[in-house]
Write a protein that binds this DNA or RNA. Structure first.
Length: 600
RNA sequence: GGGGGCGUAGCUCAACUGGUUAGAGUACCGGACUGUCGAUCCGGUGGUUGCGGGUUCGAAUCCCGUCGCCCUCGCCA
């Protein structure tokens, strides 16, 4: 062991170590220099320990040179802090290390932003005045020194460990599948990789290991999982990165209930062992159609109510032309009751061109009707179009009380859902209906998704989940006659408004698979050329099977209660899918392109 | 591709309605200081107000263009 190597971490020394000679390695979190002594807070990922260098210490002169983020080795004796000078903000705050020997292992220029500043809780020096995100991404190696990010990455490690432990104990095999695969035109845009040895041909990076895991089922690996990187060349969001990590699970000889049980137990273990939260199972199972009506979303945040209420029948009894026109065209009028919000919004904000109207316009709604409840009555610029009896019925249906704000959208089913669904979340935010200081988690399974959605642009049916999802047995006969009515054996796991996972029971019968391809407008020849290997495999004795994939980055967000996926990934990409640290994606040499047979 | 927000010192921000030499905290540099722990005190360096153009006696501020970042719609089987 070299003489500078640590004997302890910066988080472990206590009064039980008093008198011991120790060596610490770490970064300078902060320093306080006096004429005759220097205090150094030395930081590593285990904590912070105060080091004192005094005038009679041999390296006192050197200590004067020390600045933030220098890497040091300190050899010294653990001693108690003097009476009344203990620091309760640090878990090591009862002791300090009196330096005997000190060396600078590496210097650091004045950092572009402060890694640390203010102590907020024991051991963790929290950040205030956090630097701009692009700067932090550019110097990610500095940003990653922050305790918050170090804790988050440690939590991801623990999450992966729990997953492996739980699944291993139940006989699952962790198997790897290729990164270089075949492009399939269905689904998200592929990241493509050119083949050098076959000029003009391309691999695709996996959007998920979907087909491989099904082939593993055919091959008899009846309990499979993989913590797999997936890549999709689509636009980014606060909860979407171009490469992300899924827990991919597949089982043979199972039905939906078996997977629900497995995943519920896994979720219990993850929440218990990662953040110490006990959760209740089984999770509620909600039908797709029902959640769309009640929450306007297939991934509702169930931490608050404010459910959407259909008032189409009442709207018919009004003389309000906007409502009547919509209803006449087969549309719907639905509303939410923002409890107590009447005085939070001025009529200016509510009227056409106002903030709230603009908000719903962003989701396709042509307008926003509203009533405030005052003195037991509805008031609005449109109240005259609503007979007293109808107003009373509206109040009753929406359980309206004084001070409430009722918000209505009239449009097609899809538009009402997305506009009111978004408005519900927005109002929930404004009214602070979610207490982020509480560790509150609401889980649910969403089931009975339609197998197909209509692609109006292309005038064809598209797979809602993916084309290998089994339809419900009782809906199979509708496959050709009424595809829109076919429900799938598909399910999403939702947590606090996030789609935390999704899966399905797969088709294991080649004839059914062929029928499904043909609903999607794929001829037998096309199906054979794209997915021939899967159809073949299904013919060769495929077991009934199904699985699920969990978005582990989102799980990390949920567990750490952050809203930005970049905060739970070590080296994330920005919204333009660029890595600000490495500069990827970058141009490449003409020579590289030439080898690949690619023309500029 | 559309909508919204932001861009001022190394960093975090301020600068009223267009009006004096663009300020503060912090970091950095120098000095003082024996118990600090967001040390304190004194002094100092530091600015293409993202970039380009325009309006004006005068622009950080208004207008046009452009670049970058964030949120979002479309997209994400």
């Amino acid at each position: 062991m070299a003489d500078w190597q640590r004997t302890h971490t910066c988080g472990e020394l206590r009064e039980s170590h008093l008198g011991q000679t120790v060596v610490l390695n770490g970064w300078v979190n902060s320093y306080r220099a006096y004429n005759d002594q220097v205090f150094l807070d030395l930081r590593d990922r285990y904590g912070v320990t105060q080091v004192v260098v005094e005038a009679d210490d041999p390296d006192f002169a050197l200590a004067q040179e020390i600045r933030d983020e220098f890497v040091l080795t300190v050899s010294g004796v653990v001693r108690s802090r003097i009476e009344g000078k203990h620091n309760p903000k640090l878990t090591t705050g009862d002791i300090e290390v009196k330096a005997k020997k000190l060396a600078i292992l590496n210097r650091c220029p004045n950092p572009p932003f402060a890694v640390m500043s203010i102590p907020q809780e024991p051991e963790v020096f929290g950040e205030t005045e956090l630097a701009g995100e692009d700067l932090r991404l550019q110097y990610r190696f500095l940003d990653l020194r922050r305790p918050t990010l170090q804790k988050t990455l440690a939590l991801r490690h623990r999450m992966n460990k729990v997953i492996r432990d739980v699944l291993d104990a139940q006989g699952f095999l962790e198997l790897e599948t290729p990164l270089l695969g075949r492009s399939s035109p269905e689904g998200a845009r592929d990241y493509l990789v050119p083949s050098r040895v076959t000029p003009g041909a391309w691999y695709a990076l996996p959007q998920s290991p979907q087909l491989y895991k099904q082939l593993l089922m055919v091959a008899g690996y009846d309990k499979y999982f993989q913590i797999a990187r997936c890549l999709r060349d689509e636009d980014l969001r606060a909860d979407r990165q171009p490469e992300f990590t899924q827990l991919d699970v597949e089982m043979s000889f199972v039905e939906m209930d078996d997977l629900f049980r497995l995943l519920e137990n896994l979720t219990v273990e993850v929440f218990r062992r990662c953040i110490g939260v006990e959760i209740q199972t089984p999770f509620p199972r909600l039908q797709y159609e029902d959640v769309m009506l009640r929450y306007g979303s297939d991934k509702p945040d169930l931490r608050f109510g404010m459910e959407i209420v259909d008032v189409t029948e009442l709207a018919k009894q009004s003389t309000f032309k906007v409502f009547l026109d919509v209803v006449g065209k087969g549309g719907f009028v639905r509303a939410i009751n923002a409890k107590g919000a009447a005085d939070k919004f001025s009529n200016t904000e509510l009227k056409p061109g106002g903030k709230l109207t603009e908000f719903v316009a962003g989701f396709g709604a042509k307008g926003l009707a509203w009533f405030k409840v005052e003195g037991g009555k509805l008031t609005s610029s449109i109240e005259k179009f609503f007979p007293v009896g109808v107003q009373e019925q509206l109040q009753k249906t929406l359980q309206a009380e004084n001070g409430d704000l009722l918000l209505f959208v009239a449009d097609t089913h899809d538009t009402v859902c997305s506009a009111l669904g978004a408005l519900r979340l927005h109002m929930g935010n404004v009214l602070k209906l979610i207490d982020m200081t509480k560790k509150e988690f609401k889980f649910a399974w969403v089931i009975d998704f339609p197998s197909f959605i209509r692609d109006e642009e292309e005038k064809r049916w598209a797979a809602n989940h993916h084309p290998f999802t089994a339809p419900r047995d009782e809906d199979l006969h509708l496959l050709e006659s009424d595809p829109g009515k076919v429900r799938a054996k598909a399910y999403d796991l939702i947590i606090n408004g996030y789609e935390a996972g999704g899966g399905s029971i797969r088709i294991h019968n080649p004839e059914v698979q062929q029928r499904l391809f043909s609903v999607l407008g794929m001829s037998p020849e096309q199906a054979k050329s794209r997915f021939g290997f899967l159809l073949d495999a299904l013919k060769f004795g495929a077991p009934p099977h199904g699985g699920i994939a969990l978005g582990l980055d989102r799980w990390a967000m949920i567990l750490t209660q952050t809203t930005n996926i970049r905060d739970v990934i070590a080296f994330p990409k920005n919204q333009k899918a660029r890595d600000l640290m490495t500069g990827a994606p970058s141009e490449v040499d003409a020579k590289q392109l030439k080898e690949l047979g690619i023309k500029q």
